[in-house]
Each structure stands twice: as structure tokens, then as C-alpha cells.
Design a protein around this nucleic acid. Sequence first.
DNA 1: AAGTCCCG
DNA 2: AAAT
Length: 216
Amino acid sequence: MTTDLFDLSDGEPWQEPVGEGVVVLRRFARNTAPDLVQAIGKVASKAPFRHMVTPGGRSMSAAMTCAGELGWVTDRSGYRYQSTDPESGLLWPEIPESFKELARNAAEAAGYRGFVPDACLINRYQRGARMGLHQDKDEQEFSWPIVSVSLGLPITFQFGGPRRSDKPVKILLEHGDVVVWGGPARLFYHGVLTLKAGHHPLTGSCRYNLTFRRAG
DNA sequence: AAGTCCCG
DNA sequence: AAAT
């Protein structure tokens, strides 16, 4: 029997407010996802994914690369944005047009008109990879939001408060979901739990996350 | 110097 | 298994 009243699989994206300044745009990037994944491959052909080392000397489980005028990097000396890839000395690849358009549209849907990111961090999670609770606070200003796009396998996102000790809410993020946080939530702690093994038709065994920022 | 986008 |  058909139950199209409850079948949202081909419907429009919808929004779920998480808290003041935080919204999940469910399936917002679903239609452009194939283009986004292809563009990730092009960026990675110029600036390959790598496991950066934190100031504590440990390697991050998520592999990262960047696009844009500025890229986020970490090494033993700290966390920072810089215009060049430390592995090659070259400028980071440009942010693909499909990325910029999505970031602008998602920010606008969340109430931020005219978002033009100058930094895109691309994270690749494979089985076992995670991201501990942290703040995005290496940018020069915090008036623009963070726009975070999930592609491929699902993962549990945690979104906390201004102090690490604030209990985070858990949100399952699936393919095409976009989270936007800004205003009072701009500096809130967030992270993701360990990625479980799985298979996705577009990305295979991994999850990609694009985060767009205005860093400079 | 402090804190840690890390680990156990 | 997650939280601390």
C-alpha cells in the first residue's frame, strides 16, 4: 500500500532548529551532492588529503584538505589559517563554484544573506575517525556563521555550549544535511562521534564534511 | 603560558 | 558505549 502522506524521500528539504543560532537544513545539499563530491576529487588532486598533527603531537583521525584564500592547518606549533598548503608550499585550490553557491544559499536559508566564505575545510572520515569537542575560534572575526555540509555516510554530531563542560545535544547528520551556526552559537563547542563502517552509493565507505568560514 | 580539533 |  502507498503512504505518500508520510513519504518525504522526494520532497523538499526542511529545517530543524537546534537552539538559538543553530539550524539543521535537512537534505539541503542532496541535489548538488554528486557535483560536490566530484569537486572534492578535483581539489584533492591538487591538495591531497592528509592527517595533520596537533600541538600535542598526535595525528588527527579525520583526513583534511582545504580550498580558498585561507586554509586551516595544525602542526606541533599550533592552529592557524594560512594561504598556502604546508605540504606543497602552493596556494590552496580555489573554492569550487558549486561549493560557494551552496554555502551562500544555505547561509541565506538560515538568515545570513551575502555569505562569501574565504576558507573551506574539507574533512574525510573513514571508519573509526572522529572529531572531539572543539571551538572554531581561529578566525579573525565571528560575525559570519559556520556552514557545515555532510556528504555520504551518517554520523552523530554533538553540539554543546560556550563551555566544554556544557552537555551537548546529539544530532544524526545524514547525506545532504547542512548545519549552520552563528550569532550566540558561533563559538559553541561541537564535534562528531566515531564514524561507523558502512557504504554509501556516492561516497563509498566514507563521509565528507565541508565547512565554510570567513576566516580573514 | 595555557590549553589541547589529541589519546586512553 | 559514551562521558569525563
